[in-house]
């Protein structure tokens, strides 16, 4: 990660990274969504320049690319935090205490679901069901599932994980 990542500074987007993606999906019908997915894998979000490039290369209108990118919950048009915490609010998790988890993180980090903390450290997302219902309530921090979470446990975990990384990098 570059130093400018956290403060939301506009580091230049390397559009050439998209070439292999265009090659792979060349000529395939209905390839817009997989291409957006691959683009997000590359850039971690969908920069405006990339949307424009995809529209040009697929020969479709930018309005269509934008319409699709904003329709699906998976796509992000803004840079995300260094750490991403997903709190599952699937039904099983919900009845087993997700709301308390969300409130706890909101209070502790002053961040609302869908937002990133001002220091760019943590993005909080509330998602509907990650399919780990038997481990309810479940959370996912940077891709790692943590089941049967309690607010205190989660906060402890976040304090350790999130602050430790930022200390290392400063």
């Amino acid at each position: 990660m570059t130093a400018s990542d956290g403060d939301g500074g506009a580091s230049a987007v390397d559009l050439s990274l998209m070439e292999p993606v265009f090659q792979k999906y060349s000529g395939q019908p209905g390839a817009l969504i997989p291409i957006l997915q691959k683009a997000q894998d590359i850039y971690n979000y969908l920069p405006a320049e990339v949307l424009q490039l995809i529209a040009e290369r697929l020969g479709i209108a930018l309005s269509k690319v934008y319409g699709v990118a904003t329709f699906y919950a998976q796509f992000y048009l803004e840079r995300r935090g260094k750490h991403v915490l997903k709190i599952c609010d699937g039904t099983a998790c919900h009845v087993k205490g997700t709301p308390a988890l969300i409130t706890a993180v909101e209070e502790e980090f002053n961040v609302r679901p869908g937002e990133t903390t001002l220091d760019g450290e943590l993005t909080l997302e509330v998602v509907y069901c990650i399919g780990s219902c038997a481990l309810a309530p479940a959370t996912v921090l940077d891709g790692r599932v943590m089941g049967r979470m309690r607010p205190t446990q989660l906060l402890q975990h976040l304090r350790r994980h999130v602050s430790k990384t930022s200390v290392q990098e400063t």
């Binding site: 405006a48 209108a61 930018l62 309005s63 269509k64 690319v65 934008y66 319409g67």
Partner: peptide, 18 residues
């Protein structure tokens, strides 16, 4: 193709381009 809908549900918005 100037116009399209963006977002979804109650947040659906008529937008030009991006």
């Amino acid at each position: 193709d100037v116009w399209n809908f963006a977002h979804r549900g109650f947040r659906t918005k008529l937008v030009a381009g991006a």
